[in-house]
Nucleic acid binder design. Sequence first.
DNA 1: GTCCCAGGCCGAACGTGTTTCAATTTCCCG
DNA 2: CGGGAAATTGAAACACGTTCGGCCTGGGAC
Lengths: 203, 203
Amino acid sequence: MTEPLPVFDDDEQAAGGALARNQAARRRRVIEATLELANQGGFEAVQMRDVAAAAGVALGTVYRYFASKERLLLEANVEQIEVLGERLQRKPAAGATAADRVIDVLTRANRALQRRPEATAAMVRALGRAQPDEAEAVDRVTESMTAIIVAAMHEGEATERDLQVARALQQIWFSSLIGWVGGVDPAERVDSDLATAVRLLLV
Amino acid sequence: MTEPLPVFDDDEQAAGGALARNQAARRRRVIEATLELANQGGFEAVQMRDVAAAAGVALGTVYRYFASKERLLLEANVEQIEVLGERLQRKPAAGATAADRVIDVLTRANRALQRRPEATAAMVRALGRAQPDEAEAVDRVTESMTAIIVAAMHEGEATERDLQVARALQQIWFSSLIGWVGGVDPAERVDSDLATAVRLLLV
DNA sequence: GTCCCAGGCCGAACGTGTTTCAATTTCCCG
DNA sequence: CGGGAAATTGAAACACGTTCGGCCTGGGAC
């Protein structure tokens, strides 16, 4: 390693001592490097050695923070999805009916995802490979996806049926993304599958 | 190799000459070995070297027939799914309404899949990892799943809407299987998700 | 300030999917 | 039967995720 020095290039809250601060900074750098690589070349470009090198950290250190490549990608993308969710909320869904609003928000979400096709593909691939250890991270991602849908349906409390519909749509969304990422379907198919499903589910 | 002899333990049509016959037999042995290993230990137990050894074939030969591990698992499982589809047809779905029939057939299908959890997990994992090269194999699997659903809906020609519903259900089915295999959800969740979705989609 | 050690950090080594290639065997056909 | 094409073999090498054992450091005890 040519750079064994502790570096603080992070804007997080510095809660604990120097150690805790360094750890937070390292973790952040690893995630940043991951997103960078994922943006450029997708899942296969995120090679653990490269992530480590780009983050200025040893390979073993990456594994100290993230138990596996899937976990790393998942955790890096949970943030992204959550940010996306917030952004979508800020500009509330347009449309008179719930169906219109859901279609609107999903279309916008997909547009955002397709703007970084490689990164999206990497995230979806990580989701598709998840094993029991990663269940929690997977859950957080799908939870975010569901939340985006629920929020678009209406303002107040969601009914049981709303939640069922939202889960179904999230599952269809995920399947479609897999299909797109796997080269089975074109990107537009994600939108059209979802629009069709919304029309079937939200009478 | 201790067994270089050509073996014909296959019941397929012997169309061409000895070469074609041997190739068919080899291919079959590789698939058989794959299913065997997948049944026992799932995805990670299907190791290419072991498959080759169990099939009495060199590693390079396995790759002559199947471009990748995913492809191998996919092709091995297309057969399984198709057989399952036929078996399900033989005992037609029970129920007065389309919804009941679809739930019935999906429940039976899941019971069959859960009887070989490891093999199912291996197939689902392969589906989730698919890349563009494997698109065709993926398509055949999802096609079979959709066909099972369509067949349960009614006898005659399927309407456009039927096909949309069937595709949506297939996508939900797949997502649920991923969730189960990934340890996010218990096996029963596959059934309950599908039952819920059927009730929402088939009024 | 010095000493000590739990924990962080490192990178070499391992496992498995994939590729490669020369040598050998099998098949087909004249 | 003989020759050449194609398939198969065996073994080695490569790529990349993951693991492991030892080194180093920060920070508490004194």
